[in-house]
Nucleic acid binder design. Structure first.
Lengths: 360, 360
DNA sequence: CGATCCTATGTATACGTATTCATCGTTGCA
DNA sequence: TGCAACGATGAATACGTATACATAGGATCG
């Protein structure tokens, strides 16, 4: 490797000179290798190698008006989102795209940040934040970038959207509980304003009503462990404990389980508990939670595909909205037969290790 | 907002025409607002607003040779890394930088991916992967981007590096255990080849030796919950259970705790257990783990600062290597006084909610 | 009041690549 | 043999911005 003068980076022009061809041919060699003669290509590749040439994606993007970068705007907190981000990254890499990530704590940061994002002329943008200004959405679409709303059911119809089937999933959990004889169910949501939260409650309430069971709603206030932990106090203080507590998210459910234990209550002995999301930890022996597993990899794949703008952008067709079904995971927290035997602190064997978590 | 012809995006030239000034003045207005006359600026801003002008960061980057983008190459798995990524994102956003993220499952993907990364002329790159080819490292530094090795002690001296003080942290944990009268300690590492793993064991072994305690090493095989869960079997089958098990990472420790419980063993009653990292979950009531809390926000801040290349790049000075001290979190898993009272399934009050986790 | 300096702006160019158009040598076919 | 078609390449230009340089006008100072 020769020293490239240590200062000026080596460009396609340098390679061209070294290989005795024109810059245009060098460019073709890296974008459309098929159209350049085999021996010329070898000469160019040799020269490029020797000089340590690395194509400049910035210049390429400026000329071709495509960056191969997809952005993702995602909440900073929560195990669920951290999982999803990982899938985004992997899927995008597989497609030769890069991931520009924005974590936000407060929704207020989003609109501000979005302004900066737009400067980068991303090919696509995956939005996992609820309240984006409609006007801004419209303006963003005009620039030709492919927007995708992720896990935000309300956006379907306005913007291409990818989400798990929240209502059907909650319904399946409810059916599972009804099958175990539950008639008085408490639904613990995270934030009532979230559209996922509402959809899940709707599914649970509808199905339970059809079996004659009651389903009250309670709000934890956040999608966090701590919120679930605190909610356990409220639940334990009810006149009469419900048969089951359906929690709107796994993380909140973990808090609920720990909070209940502190009051001497355990699942499934005293009350059944279900979650939603299918986090890896749900299958950890310490919780072994019955939950609805989101097929995070499939969801990510769909989102990435839409955001990559591979589909013919007819742009007059109704925005595609993908809804994927989740799968029920039966954990110890609703194991009725074991209720008598189950003591706090004892865990069944099958709950860990041997059975690969579907959520991963 | 007038329609910008719906096809051609609006550029600084369009704004210049609309405002009756030159393109150069428009550019100055967005990069060095101080140097343009107040009334001119107002005219330009009005025109820009009216046309819906958004500066093109790609073109800016091409001209200025700076992208304001910092890359991060991070393992795809593990709660620890997911946390760290969030901090990176937040810190970078605060500095007006963008985060280009690469999650890798297999270390083999890294060198391959890195090739693609380099095309984007990032301002900086945070590396959390161990085995990058030295030659590649050298080539990358030549391009002028600021490399930072994160949580990779071995790299210190070769590349600017940011890491928690692994040895001192493990030493502190060991001192804590020694103070509780432990004389026979088992150290459960994740992957012996990892430099963090070795540093932690070194710190633990040295300190324990100085108190006359023994410290055997055992390898879980991975930094995962499952690995810890399996290791619990091995540990429980030892001729004699050690006084304490020092686990090299929180996630592995969670698996160990659950694995032990399955065998009817609990901490701290039968054996003390410590972790390392200070994940949020360590303070969840379900585990309440004694661990060494990494100041993830500080670490991220240092890494981001170095990667942003704000420091004068003398480039002949020895690469700065930042080592930050962690803090001990005393959890239930080493609470000796409670050993008699503690039953599996009962949790102390103070362990959750009221005490904000230092790791968050 | 003229020389000087400073401020605000315009002109021109460069950043590194992709791509269109033109060119030139070759092959295929009548 | 002549002409069309084709394949490979070079020359030239555009992508949208930042900035060095030039310039014009006003303020400052002697």
């Amino acid at each position: 490797m020769v020293r490239p003068d240590r200062k000026r980076p080596v460009t396609s022009v340098d390679v061209a000179a070294a290989a005795g061809v024109s810059q245009a041919t060098v460019a073709r060699c890296f974008t459309t290798p098929g159209v350049v003669a085999p021996d010329t290509r070898l000469k160019i590749e040799a020269a490029a190698d020797r000089l340590g040439y690395v194509p400049n994606a910035i210049a390429r993007s400026l000329k071709s008006q495509r960056t191969s970068i997809v952005g993702a705007v995602v909440p900073a907190v929560g195990e669920y989102w951290q999982n999803v981000v990982t899938y985004f990254s992997r899927r995008l890499t597989a497609r030769g795209r890069q991931l520009l990530l924005f974590s936000f704590l407060d929704h207020a940061e989003v609109n501000e940040t979005l302004e900066a994002v737009m400067q980068y002329r991303l090919d696509g943008l995956i939005l996992a934040s609820a309240n984006i200004a409609e006007a801004q959405l419209a303006r963003m679409r005009q620039t030709g970038l492919s927007l995708v709303a992720f896990n935000h059911p309300d956006a379907a119809g306005i913007v291409p959207s990818v989400t798990v089937d929240n209502e059907a999933g909650a319904s399946e959990l409810a059916r599972h509980l009804a099958g175990l004889g539950c008639t008085r169910v408490l639904y613990l949501g995270g934030v009532a304003a979230a559209s996922t939260d509402r959809a899940r409650f709707r599914g649970a309430a509808r199905t339970l009503a059809s079996t004659g069971a009651t389903c009250n709603y309670m709000e934890a206030g956040a999608f966090t462990y701590e919120a679930g932990y605190r909610a356990a106090d409220t639940a334990a203080n009810l006149d009469r404990l419900p048969d089951a507590i359906m929690v709107g998210s796994d993380e909140v459910a973990f808090g609920m389980l720990d909070g209940l234990r502190r009051r001497g209550l355990t699942a499934p002995a005293d009350v059944l508990v279900t979650g939603f999301d299918g986090l890896p930890q749900a299958s950890w022996a310490g919780y072994d939670l019955t939950t609805l597993v989101q097929p995070a990899d499939q969801l990510a794949e769909h989102a990435v595909k839409l955001a990559s703008g591979d589909g013919s952008d007819a742009s007059d067709a109704p925005p595609p909205s993908v809804v994927v079904a989740g799968t029920l995971r039966r954990g110890l927290t609703t194991r009725r037969g074991d209720a008598g035997r189950a003591r706090p602190g004892s865990y069944s064997r099958r709950s860990c290790g041997t059975e690969p978590s579907a959520g991963r």
